[in-house]
């Protein structure tokens, strides 16, 4: 059902956990199947210095969050914001079509975390 790359991220997810003094936090709940994802970012000089996540969802959701955190770690916020769910799915070597919404979760949670960071900066 899933390719090797997805299974690898599912089995050995990168960057699982919480950043206690995060600069931005984004939580997304999936209205459709009830999954939740939360991303924590630490930002330094406009770049994502550290990123961690929690995911309560299927194999594809766990793999997507893991792949996404790897993709954007060290990237500028602008670069990170340009990452779409298709990019995440491509990075994973493809996801079953019924599982595309799981990669949405990851991208959306990241966008929210960046927004959160930006609004904290404004205040």
């Amino acid at each position: 059902m899933y390719n090797e790359k997805v299974m690898d991220h599912f089995q050995n997810p990168r960057n699982v956990g919480e950043i206690q003094d995060a600069d931005g936090v984004g939580e997304i709940g999936n209205a459709r199947c009830g999954d939740i994802m939360k991303i924590f970012i630490k930002v330094k000089e406009g770049r994502i210095e550290d990123i961690k996540f929690f995911t309560f969802g299927c194999g594809a959701a766990i793999a997507s969050s893991s792949a996404l955190t790897e993709m954007v770690k060290g990237k500028s916020l602008e670069e990170a914001l340009s990452v779409t769910n298709e990019d995440v799915a491509r990075e994973l070597g493809g996801l079953p079509s019924v599982k595309m919404h799981c990669s949405n979760l990851a991208a959306d949670a990241l966008h929210k975390a960046i927004e959160d960071y930006k609004s904290r900066c404004r205040n």
Binding site: I36, K38, T55, F56, I62
Partner: peptide, 8 residues
């Protein structure tokens, strides 16, 4: 459960 963390 570790991956779910404190979500629920």
């Amino acid at each position: 459960r570790k991956i779910t963390g404190t979500l629920v």
